[in-house]
Amino acid sequence: MSYSVGQVSGFAGITVRTLHHYDTAGLLTPSERSPAGYRLYSDADLARLQQILFYRELGFSLDEIGTILEDPDANALDQLRARHRRLSEQIGKLQRMMEVAERAMAVQETGVRLTPQERFEVFGEIAFDLSYATEAQLKWQDSEGHRRSMASAAAHTKEDWARIMAEAAAWREGLLKVFDGREPADGEAAMDLAEEHRAHIGRWFTPCPPEMHRRIGDDFARDPRAFALVVPPSQQRPGLAAYLRTAIEANAVRHDAATEGHPRNSHEDSDHRRGVVR
């Protein structure tokens, strides 16, 4: 059976001009001509076109494809292996470029204005996950607390961040000590560490009432990306995120109990019920 140029173009999803170019290049010459002189392609021609398109998809040049198809001594498998190596190298290069772009985007999302070298010096293993930072931005973009936290992060100097991370490291050491020592998550030692974490947030980023701290603790237990911001994966233990959430909850209950009997004004009481950060 024979097929016209238009039919083959529709079958293959390529333009008539491309088929004419393959013919001119000697890569795919139709086996037949109509009485009027129009190109007609046979089933064998279509099979050859399928091979050409396969190699083109892999990035082979037309000359390389011609060699593979015409030279009986050409080893198509060797050609494919060589192409596979080049593609792997290109993929690796693109992945590295993506990582660089993501780090640059993460700087914008997190509000941290440091050079890559400064970020490495200050944060070490602690890394900001771009996807988490972006989701947090979308989730909390209407929150006054989140806006204030981002503004504070943007204003911190390298020296500020060094102090922040030193505090965080000392706090993390204490958390691991009570966890490894099997102190109860709702015990005094664990609750004191939870309160220390809450104060750290308030001191450096935004006021953090117990209800907000509860939500942060839930994020730690639910999302490994969030927990990695306070405990790098190399220092994590199974159950540690849930332990911290329990300690935060117990500390929030303790805080609520301590404030019972202390009257608030009407605005404070309304804000507390709605979880508003003033």
Rank of each mutant, 00 (worst) to 15 (best):
P116S: 07
H262V: 15
M1E: 10
M150C: 11
H197K: 01
L229C: 11
R172H: 04
D73I: 02
G202T: 06
E121D: 15
R274V: 08
P233M: 08
S31R: 10
I14F: 01
S234G: 05
H267Y: 09
Y3A: 02
G6I: 09
H272C: 03
R163F: 02
Q117S: 12
L69P: 06
T24A: 15
M165A: 05
T246A: 10
V107I: 11
E144I: 10
H267D: 11
A252P: 00
A154T: 11
D23N: 11
L87A: 05
M105N: 09
M97C: 04
E89G: 10
I248N: 04
F220G: 06
R264I: 03
D160L: 04
L130F: 14
G181C: 05
T29S: 13
D192Y: 09
S149C: 08
M98S: 08
N251V: 01
T115E: 14
G239H: 05
R278P: 09
F205V: 03
F54V: 11
G10I: 05
A155Q: 12
G239I: 02
A250K: 03
I201D: 00
M165W: 06
T18F: 00
R274T: 06
N251Y: 00
A257C: 09
Q235D: 14
G187K: 05
E32V: 04
Q137H: 12
A226K: 01
G124S: 09
S42T: 15
D269V: 09
A170M: 14
D180G: 12
G66Q: 08
R172V: 04
Q141P: 00
R222K: 14
R182C: 12
H156N: 01
L53E: 02
D78C: 08
P224F: 03
L58G: 07
E70Y: 01
E32W: 12
G181V: 08
E159Y: 01
F220Q: 04
A44H: 12
R254V: 03
G111T: 08
L77E: 15
T67Q: 12
A106T: 15
L87G: 07
T246W: 03
L69E: 11
Q51G: 01
E89F: 08
A44W: 06
F60P: 03
Q117L: 15
I91P: 00
L46S: 06
S61A: 13
D256Y: 09
M150E: 05
I91Q: 12
E249P: 00
R163Q: 13
R172D: 10
E144S: 12
R273V: 13
E125G: 03
L58V: 12
V253M: 07
Y38I: 01
Q51C: 02
T134G: 05
M1L: 08
Y22E: 09
R198W: 06
G10N: 12
L240K: 07
M98R: 14
S61D: 10
F205M: 05
A104K: 14
G66P: 05
R81N: 11
I68C: 04
Y41I: 07
I65Q: 01
K177N: 11
I248E: 04
R119I: 02
A221K: 00
F227H: 00
G145S: 15
V122D: 09
T67S: 13
D180E: 15
I91N: 07
G66R: 10
D192Q: 15
H156L: 11
P238N: 02
I126C: 08
L240T: 04
M212H: 10
G92P: 00
L69S: 09
Y41V: 06
R48P: 02
G37A: 06
